[in-house]
Design a protein around this nucleic acid. Structure first.
Lengths: 362, 362
DNA sequence: TTAAGTTGTGGAAACGTTTCCAGTGGCGCT
DNA sequence: AGCGCCACTGGAAACGTTTCCACAACTTAA
C-alpha cells in the first residue's frame, strides 16, 4: 500500500539517501550532481511517483505560474472562444488559467479580480463591465501585475485586444446607406453594461449623421425579449417604419428575423438585418446572415501573447485593433419602396456591394 | 509611496504591535482577542491594504480551494455552457476554477490532469476523450481527490453527470420509424474521440434493429467537411437513398441542411434532419430544428454540486441521468415516396408526433 | 488566601520548495 | 608539498500562513 499522503521532495531525498537541496538540483537540472546520485534521485522520484507541488514552488519563487481570466459569461460563445484562444496560447507556456465569470455584474467583476489577486495570479486577462472603475483592477495595476484586456477599446494605461467597434458600426451604416436605407434601428441587449454595444451604437449613429440620415432608433431589450420571439415581435411592431436593423450581435440578428417572420415581414424585402461577430452558424443558414466578421479567438490569442511577453520582462506596446470584415449575406437588400414613408423617395444605388475584408486604420 | 512588495500578515502584526498569531486570529475570527488589539489589527490591515495570500494558506492547510476543470474545447458551446454551470455553482463556495482544454487529444488530456494535480486542486471536474485510460486520472482517484465527470456515461467508480445518449438516440430512431423512414444515416464528427457520438450511434442502431429497419449508415466526417458545405454535399451525394439523417449535434444538423440545399434536396421533404443538444439558435431558425434537447449547463451544475458535497465530506452517490426531451421542429417530416427505392412501400403512420418531455429511466 | 479556571497573547513549528552558503574532497599547478 | 580551483554536497533560511503550546494576567469559587 502506497502512503496516501502526498510524497514530497524530502521523501525523495531520504529514499535516495541525499539532501533535499541535491534532490531539487537533480530534479530541476539546476545544478551539478554526480551521475551516481542523479541516478538514485531519479529512480526514487519515479518509484515514489513524486511530482512537484506547485504550491510550495509558488510560495518560494513568488510566481504562481497562473494567469487569472475574467469574462462576463462563458455561455456567450464570443467570450468562450476568446478564452479558448487565451488557453491555446498559454498551453505550451507552463502557465495555467484560473477563470471566473461575472455575469455582467460590475460588483461581481470587482470581487472576482480581488479573488484572483489573492490567489497571486502572475497576470490578468479580462473583459469587464467597467475596467476603468474597478478598485481591484486598479490595485492590480499598482502592483505591477501584467494586465491585458479583451474587447475593450484602448484605455489609459491598459493593454487591450479589440476590434474597433466604432469603425465597424460605421461600415454597417455605410452598407445601409449605400442601399438607400434611411429609417434604421440599432438593437441591443444589455446596452448599459456593455461598452461594446455602446461603441457600436455610437459609430452607427455617427455615420448616419455624417450621411445626413435620420438618427437610428435605439432599441434596448432584456433577456426575456431576446429569447422569446413573440415579445421581440411586439417591440418590433412599434417601429413599422424601419427598413433596416443593425443588431449588436448575431444571435440577436437571428432572433430579429424570427420576430419579423411572426409579424409577416419578409427579410430582407421588408426588413434588412445585419449582425455583429460573425459566428460560424450564420454562414450556414438558409438565408446567410450579413454581419461584421470578427475573431474572438484571435483576440484571446493576442491578449495572451501580450501577457506572455510582459511576463518575460519585455514591455508590450498597445497593438492596433484586430481586423474585421463586412460579410455580405442574404439578409441585406434594397429597402422596399412600398414600405414606410421614407424609402419611397430614396435614391437607388448600384446593387453590387463591396464585401472585401476591411483592414483597420492603424 | 506604498511598498511595491506584497504586504504580509507579518507586516500587519508589526504595524499593529502584536504577534502574527494574534493578527491571524483577529483577521480570521478564529480565536480570542481583546477589543483593543482587534481594533488595532483591523485598522492596520485596512490601512496597509492587506489581503491574505492564498498560497501561504494553501501550503499550510493543504487545501488550495481550487477545483480543476478539463474539457475538450471551449469553442464548443456545449462544453462552454457546462463550464459556465460549474462556475455558477462554485461561485459562492469559495472555490476557484483552474481550467484547461485538451482539444480532443487523449495525450493532452492526461498531461492536463497531471498539471492540475501538481497545482494541488482539491477536486476535478472533467470531460475527457477516455477517462478510463488516463493514468493521471487514475492517480488522482487513488489519492482520493473528489472527481466528477461530465457527459460520460457511468463508469466504474466515478461519479458522472450525463444524459443517456443511448436512450436519446433510440428516441430519434423511434421518431424516424414512426414517420415511415427506413433508410437513415448517422452523421458524426470526431467519432473516434467521442464516446458520446459512439453511444448515440449505438442507441440509434439498436433501435433501428429492434424495429426491423436496415442498419443506419454511419457517416464520419472531419473538420473540413463540417465547415465547408460543398465538401459535405459531396459526401451526402454518395448516399442518395437516405431519407433521414440523425446528426450527432445541432451544428452538424444545420450544416447538413446547407449541404442538402446545395444538392437541390429539400428539407424536410427530401431529407429529414434531426440534431442533438438543443442549442438555443435552433429554435429561432426559419425552419426550427428538430433535435434532442439537453442542458449542458444543468450538467455542469450537477457535477459541481456533487463535487461540493464530496469536498464537504459527504459521500455522493451516482445520480440518475439528466432528462432530455425530443423537440419537434420543421426539419422532420414524412419521407418523400418519390425518393429512393425504399420509402415507396413504407406504411404511413399517423402524422401527429408525441413531442412531450421524455424523462429518463432511473 | 489559594487553587482552578478563563482569557489574551506571542513564539515556534510546520507545510514544500529553492537557493545561498559553507564545507568536503580531488585534481592539476607551481 | 603547498596552493588554488573545481565539482559536488547538504544544512538552513526564506516564502506566508495557521495552529499548537506555553505563559501571563486575570477572575471566580472554595
Amino acid at each position: 500500500m502506497s502512503k496516501t499522503t502526498n510524497i514530497t521532495i524530502k521523501d525523495v531525498a531520504q529514499s535516495a539517501g541525499c539532501g533535499v537541496a541535491t534532490a531539487s538540483r537533480v530534479l530541476n537540472n539546476s545544478g551539478p550532481a554526480s551521475a551516481d546520485v542523479r541516478e538514485r534521485v531519479e529512480r526514487a522520484a519515479r518509484e515514489l511517483g513524486f511530482s512537484f507541488s506547485a504550491i510550495g514552488r509558488a510560495l518560494q519563487s513568488r510566481r504562481s505560474m497562473t494567469v487569472g481570466c475574467l469574462v462576463p459569461s462563458l455561455a456567450n460563445p464570443v467570450f468562450a472562444e476568446a478564452v479558448q484562444g487565451v488557453q491555446a496560447v498559454l498551453l505550451g507556456s507552463g502557465y495555467q488559467m484560473l477563470i471566473s465569470c461575472s455575469n455582467y455584474d460590475a460588483a461581481a467583476d470587482d470581487a472576482a479580480i480581488e479573488m484572483l489577486l489573492a490567489k497571486k495570479t502572475d497576470a490578468l486577462v479580462t473583459t469587464m463591465v467597467d475596467p476603468d472603475r474597478s478598485p481591484a483592477l486598479r490595485l492590480a495595476k499598482k502592483r505591477g501585475i501584467p494586465i491585458s484586456l479583451m474587447f475593450h477599446d484602448p484605455l489609459d494605461g491598459f493593454i487591450t485586444s479589440y476590434v474597433d467597434n466604432f469603425e465597424a458600426a460605421k461600415e454597417v451604416a455605410r452598407q445601409f446607406a449605400g442601399l438607400g436605407h434611411r429609417r434604421t434601428g440599432f438593437l441591443a441587449l444589455r446596452f448599459s453594461t456593455s461598452d461594446r454595444s455602446r461603441n457600436r451604437y455610437a459609430g452607427f449613429h455617427s455615420e448616419c449623421r455624417t450621411r445626413g440620415l435620420p438618427d437610428p432608433v435605439l432599441i434596448e431589450i432584456g433577456e426575456a425579449e431576446a429569447n422569446q420571439p413573440d415579445l421581440l415581435a411586439a417591440i418590433l411592431a412599434q417601429h413599422p417604419a424601419l427598413t433596416a436593423i443593425f443588431a449588436s450581435n448575431d444571435f440577436l440578428a437571428i432572433a430579429v428575423q424570427k420576430a419579423a417572420r411572426l409579424l409577416g415581414w419578409r427579410v430582407p424585402q421588408d426588413l434588412s438585418v445585419v449582425g455583429f461577430d460573425g459566428i460560424e452558424i450564420g454562414r450556414l443558414l438558409e438565408k446567410p446572415l450579413a454581419t461584421i466578421e470578427t475573431s474572438p479567438e484571435a483576440m484571446g490569442r493576442q491578449a495572451a501573447s501580450s501577457l506572455l511577453t510582459m511576463l518575460q520582462g519585455g514591455d508590450t506596446v498597445q497593438l492596433p485593433a484586430l481586423p474585421f470584415a463586412f460579410r455580405a449575406g442574404a439578409t441585406l437588400a434594397l429597402p422596399n419602396p412600398e414600405n414606410g414613408d421614407d424609402g419611397r423617395g430614396a435614391t437607388r444605388p448600384s446593387p453590387d456591394l463591396p464585401a472585401e475584408p476591411h483592414a483597420q486604420q492603424g
